[in-house]
């Protein structure tokens, strides 16, 4: 189950999106996130979703692979949906005991769920098409101006890339430890939430200890390979904007502007009310 999580994982394929400069992708993702929060109606999100689907097609990554990787956010998603449905006040559609479901509630729940899904897929597209090292290289270059005010940009980006590198290793290790503890009679599946949380302690302790040991060994190995921070360091793949990056930036600009315009579309709520109105 843990192995299926693909957050922060690179998917090797040969596509235009993969070849884009990581900075372009970072800027694109950032714009996408901002615009998601500026979009007001479901129409806007639908169009954003459609655009995202086109990008997914361009990455040559199978859609099921991306969707499967989002499993971990399902719980969060359910939470958002349920909370929004129950908490938002408005025209009451259904009322069972203390539970009231309102028109606005359903609308907000759907809207929030869509936004969350688009957000996560958008971000994971970036990590799926960019190797962690490229990603952090790009981030380092983008944040370079911050160096002037003594922000350790290089160190932060190195830490990030190592963290991403060790996600699958630690996942595998968690799996292994859980199996080892299950074999000795540990029970992770039943009991109350509190009991289950307690059952995780014998998993977490060895995991943390082993993570520290790994960190220590990795640091030694990095030193042995002459790592001494940013000073005098070169890159095999120097970041250089290509023609495709300029085109991509143009696409991002036009896309964002277009999505922003959806704010001024005739509100979808009217359509929505019309549909839900049929049931009340």
């Amino acid at each position: 189950m843990l192995r299926d999580i693909t957050i922060g994982q690179y998917y090797s394929a040969d596509s235009v999106i993969h070849r884009l400069d990581p900075r372009t992708k970072l800027i694109g993702t950032f714009c996408f996130i901002v615009i998601l929060f500026l979009i007001k109606g479901v129409y806007g999100l639908l169009i954003a979703g459609l655009l995202l689907l086109l990008i997914v097609k361009a990455t040559k990554i199978p859609l099921w692979y991306i969707v499967r990787g989002q499993k971990s956010i399902y719980i969060l998603l359910m939470f958002t949906v349920v909370l929004n449905m129950l908490m938002v006040k408005g025209d009451v559609l259904v009322k069972i005991g203390f539970i009231t479901i309102t028109r606005e509630g359903i609308y907000t729940a759907v809207f929030m769920a869509m936004r969350l899904i688009l957000l996560v897929i958008g971000c994971s597209l970036m990590t799926l098409t960019t190797t962690p090292l490229q990603l952090t290289d790009g981030l380092e270059r983008l944040l370079r101006p911050l160096k002037k005010i003594k922000v350790p940009v290089h160190d932060i980006s190195m830490m990030m890339s190592i963290a991403l590198r060790f996600i699958p290793i630690l996942m595998e290790e968690t799996d292994k430890i859980m199996k080892a503890q299950s074999a000795r009679g540990a029970d992770f599946e039943s009991g109350s939430i509190l009991q289950r949380a307690k059952a995780l302690i014998p998993v977490l302790v060895p995991l943390v200890i082993s993570a520290f040991r790994r960190a220590d060994e990795l640091a030694t190995a990095m030193e042995a390979r002459c790592y001494r921070g940013d000073e005098g360091r070169t890159r095999m793949k120097e970041l250089k904007y290509q023609k495709r990056d300029h085109i991509a930036k143009l696409v991002i600009l036009v896309g964002c502007a277009g999505l922003y315009m959806t704010r001024f579309l005739p509100s979808i709520t009217q359509t929505f009310y019309a549909i839900t109105g049929l049931f009340s």
Partner: peptide, 18 residues
Amino acid sequence: NQMIASIVEEDVAFGPEN
């Protein structure tokens, strides 16, 4: 515990980059 990068060639490049 001695691989820094998530791609083989990037890891090999780590030393000469340093």
